[in-house]
């Protein structure tokens, strides 16, 4: 495998916006041609770095992804793949099968799958290591937390439970992103009360954050400069948490995160 420099990684990611991929793929031939080459490079880079088994090498890829919030796009795609794959609706394979000839689309689709699955499977880009979930899981959640299949089930949280989540976020220094993610994901399981829960969480975060605020991740500190979660949302130009979530464009999302919005730590 050819050695890849970190500069090459940065340069490759400068020209690609994964979140715009679907839109441009359908309408822009020039973009198709450009991403064909760039995506080959990115996958080559990921493969090379992944094969090195050195987590530090992946920092450059991670940072490059974070710059354009692409990490969340890939993460959503990975969790969405898991969710869709367990849908038990059957399809008559032979009846619904068609043949077509579009090698470019197949290449892009094949590459995308490797990119999504590779990032998800690496367990470095995304915190999905189920083997250690007990250690990494201070918030008691069900296995389906990423993509709750119990959307219609009424889930309620007590103030005490939300306070516990807030404390976990503030004390879970190593896995801050993960703690925020899991917490928000949980609270969004009850869409009717999510605004109440989020403001309660904000309130507890304010109460429990310690004096030395610089010890906490910048994105958390920036978010807590707003007195309530509503204010935080409004400052981003949205009228409500629901609009915020909708505009963020996560088809399967039941969460927003402070960490991932700003690209994580």
């Amino acid at each position: 495998m050819q050695d890849i420099t970190n500069e090459e990684i940065k340069r490759a990611f400068q020209y690609v916006d994964i979140s715009q991929m679907d839109k441009r793929l359908a309408s822009n031939i020039a973009y198709r041609q450009a991403i064909e080459e760039i995506y080959r490079n990115i996958n080559r880079l990921i493969t090379a770095k992944y094969s090195s088994n050195n987590p530090e090498d992946l920092d450059y890829i991670l940072k490059a992804l974070q710059e354009k919030e692409q990490r969340q796009v890939l993460q959503d795609a990975y969790y969405n793949a898991i969710k869709r794959s367990t849908n038990k609706e059957r399809v008559d394979f032979r009846r619904e099968k068609r043949n077509a000839n579009n090698q470019f689309i197949k290449f892009i689709a094949g590459f995308s799958a490797v990119l999504v699955i590779g990032c998800g499977s690496s367990k470095i880009l995304f915190p999905i290591d189920k083997e250690n979930t007990n250690e990494k899981e201070p918030i008691k959640v069900e296995q389906t937390v990423y993509y709750s299949t119990k959307q219609n089930t009424e889930v309620t949280f007590t103030d005490k439970e939300i306070e516990k989540m807030a404390k976990e976020i503030l004390t879970n220094e190593k896995d801050y992103d993960y703690a925020v993610y899991r917490c928000f994901q949980e609270l969004f399981r009850n869409p009717l009360k999510v605004d109440v829960y989020m403001n309660t969480l904000f309130s507890y975060l304010h109460e429990n954050i310690e004096a030395n605020i610089n010890d906490y991740p910048q994105e958390l500190v920036a978010a807590l400069n707003h007195s309530t979660f509503d204010e935080y949302i409004t400052s981003h130009g949205f009228n409500s948490i629901y609009e915020y979530r909708q505009v963020m464009g996560n088809q399967n999302a039941e969460y927003v995160t402070l960490a991932y919005e700003s690209g994580g730590r």
Binding site: A81, S85, T86, E89, F93, A113, S121, K130, T144
Partner: peptide
């Protein structure tokens, strides 16, 4: 027929093998 997988772990294992 194409049917859904039974568990998340089955999906993750299949994804890993594909990768």
């Amino acid at each position: 027929y194409l049917d859904g997988l039974d568990t998340d772990d089955e999906v993750i294992n299949a994804l890993d093998i594909y990768y």
